[in-house]
Computed example of a mutant assay.
Amino acid sequence: MAIEKSLYAYSPSHVLPIVFAALVGASLVVHILQNYRYRYWRITFFMFWGGAVFTTGWIVRCISTYHPGQLGLFIAQAVCIYGGPPIYSAAEYNILGRLMHYLPMHAPLNPSRVLYFFLYLGIVVEAVTAAGAARLAAARDDISLYQSGAVLISVGLVLQAVIECLFMGMVAWLHRRCVLSGMLAPNVRTICIMLYGTSTLILLRCVYRAIEAFSTIASPTSCLGLCRAILWHEWYVFAFEAAPMVLYTYWLNIIHPGRFLPRQSTRYLDPDGRTERDGPGWIESRATWWTFFDPFDLRGRAKGQLHHEAFWLQPEKWLVCSDTSYAQRSFAKSRPAWLP
């Protein structure tokens, strides 16, 4: 009986892929339960989708380790594992959009278009990454196919890193505006810190994958030094791909946005930093298609005449929410018990 030639550069672990599949899968189940509890599916749906794809990737990888020469299994696990993190990132974009609805006076763009703005960029990353992963996995001894796959993955990873930096910059903009205006309620601060942290984990994973891809472009057949260490040792994959994403999912479960931000996009925080009102939501005087084309209203900013209504400047028109505000709940939780 002929010995099956392995597509892996090392002897892959049979146990660790299923361990990480179980960890990500358990986090996915918890997230589903929390989404039902807080009715937050619309905002964090991408956590479910990304979790399903990423868990599938590790399950398929486990199967692939028992059939290391099966090209189909090898490609499937590579595409799912590479494709999960960009989908996870989309959950962050939706959370930031909801945070901007909660703080409309500090939003640099239409809050309803935050997801679309980053999603347009994310679709490019997802397509380039998936295509690169498929080419890399199918290359075998085809050097040109191997190099083209590595190039595509490198480009996708650099783009994703740039997008994450842009995202963190936008969170920092909102955070700074809240600090300067005295509106940094504990729930807002918690969400900002969570978004910084999860984005950093995505960025760490991008750096690892970029180093891996760039180190193999020039000479995949004579891989030495860092390239050899990364490609010939499986623990790098678990330490810099799997572990950061597991931390990412559990962080978002611990700091589930449903606990800190309202589900309704019309509910916003009053400038006093405690009261919440039920407003009209973000109102644009431009055509809908134009808000997709120019979510930042650059034309209006250039003319000094923005096209959205500053409804928060007339608080007397909007009813105060009858239940305890998310900001007040967070103030109560952050207040030491020994204070009067």
Rank of each mutant, 00 (worst) to 15 (best):
C178W: 03
E284A: 12
G182K: 05
I202F: 00
A287S: 10
L204I: 15
W251T: 12
M194H: 00
L339C: 13
G169V: 09
A310R: 12
V125Y: 06
Y36H: 13
R189G: 03
Y102E: 13
A243L: 15
E164D: 14
R189F: 10
Y10G: 03
D278V: 07
G25S: 13
F240A: 12
L136Q: 13
L152S: 12
W232M: 10
C165N: 01
E284V: 06
G50M: 07
G51D: 05
L269W: 03
A52E: 06
L252M: 13
Y236V: 08
L226P: 03
F293C: 15
W173S: 05
F292C: 01
V162Y: 14
G122P: 06
Y93G: 00
M47V: 04
H307T: 04
N35Q: 09
I43C: 08
L71S: 11
T291I: 06
W282T: 01
S181I: 02
S112A: 14
G225I: 11
T198K: 02
C62A: 14
A137K: 00
F238G: 03
W290T: 10
L174W: 00
W289Y: 15
L203F: 15
R42H: 08
F46P: 01
I63V: 13
R277C: 07
S112Y: 08
S285M: 15
F293M: 13
E212P: 01
Y88F: 15
S219Y: 07
T65I: 06
P271M: 03
W49I: 14
L231P: 00
A9E: 11
P85G: 04
L73F: 11
V124W: 07
R177W: 03
R135G: 12
Y146G: 04
A150D: 04
Y250H: 08
I153H: 02
G225M: 09
A76V: 14
T55W: 03
G149W: 07
F117W: 12
L269K: 03
G182M: 07
R42Y: 08
S154N: 08
S27Q: 09
W282Y: 14
R329K: 15
Y120V: 09
V171C: 02
Y196L: 09
W58H: 15
G97P: 02
A332R: 14
C223W: 11
A137E: 04
S148Y: 06
D272M: 06
R228V: 02
A327P: 04
A302C: 06
Y250R: 04
R329Y: 05
G72C: 08
Y116K: 05
F311S: 09
V162E: 06
C223Q: 10
V114Q: 00
L96D: 01
Q77T: 09
S154C: 11
C206R: 00
L33G: 08
Y268K: 00
S13I: 04
F46C: 08
Y146L: 13
L7M: 10
M100G: 01
K5C: 06
A76S: 14
G132D: 12
L145R: 13
A130H: 09
F48G: 04
G57D: 04
Y116T: 03
Y36W: 09
T275A: 00
A218G: 12
V179Y: 04
G83H: 02
P244Y: 01
V246G: 11
I211A: 11
H101Y: 14
Q70G: 05
E92T: 03
